[in-house]
Amino acid sequence: MTAAVDAAPRRRLSPRKRAQRWRLVQYGVLVAAIALAVVLADWGQIAEVFFDPSLIQETYERGLPEAFYYTIVYTAGAFVYGMVTGTILALMKLSPVGPYRWLATAYIEFFRGLPAIIVLIAISLMPLAFPGLLFPLQPYFPVWLGLGIVGSAYIAETMRAGVQAVPKGQVEAARSLGMTAGQAMRKITLPQALRIVLPPLTNELILLTKDSSLVFILGITVAQSDLTAYGREIANAESNLTPLVVAGFAYLLITLPLSLIVRRMEASAARAR
């Protein structure tokens, strides 16, 4: 046994050296891939189809600010609807009353499991089931309803987790001062729960922003179309992807600041702990 060890004087690489070599190989692969792309791709063609300067300008001027506005309004309304419904559902799910819990669970599981697009199609076809049905506030109401229903199912679960994360002693202190269960919930538990779930709620908002690209299903007029529908419309007409690229960057204008806010909030929450 000892002889075998002695007979192998060749020193093995230290773990650090091995890790260094392995990383060198990884960088090599990355550089090779980039070089291949640079050599093989037709950059002139790509620039023309994705980043045509004259089309960028035209996309902006033909109504990008309006589409941007509608995307935000559709998303914001759906988020408000989702927050209200989601909070009610969360409270129902935490209720000691059985039927409330079952109803909330059924709603959440049903709409969380469905693709948003199916909910939106169902809403657009509602008049088939209820002839003569006309949603008020066209086009806002059906949009808010459709996106809000889907959002509320997720928000409900987030809010429930937030409420449950507030220590039990908080409610006990509130109740010991004579507050009713409802007063303790409104004044003590919910404000703290909201603070806890602010980061995941902002993520919810980002998801809703992107889901708002599905509202074309509801047959919205060109003048009121959201960023995606707007970009696609011009892209199809011009046989060029530039308008969609522009629309895509417009989404990032909304979602990147939100991500930044989430990161800030998480960092300050970590510091407070």
Partner: peptide, 26 residues
């Protein structure tokens, strides 16, 4: 319960409220 004050081992102050508001909210 309004007439029965309680003090807890873990204080259970409301962290989102200032000292003053902890006393005024009820």
């Amino acid at each position: 319960r309004r007439h029965i004050g309680m003090v807890f081992q873990q204080f259970n102050l409301f962290p989102h409220l200032r000292a003053l508001e902890n006393c005024t909210t009820a």
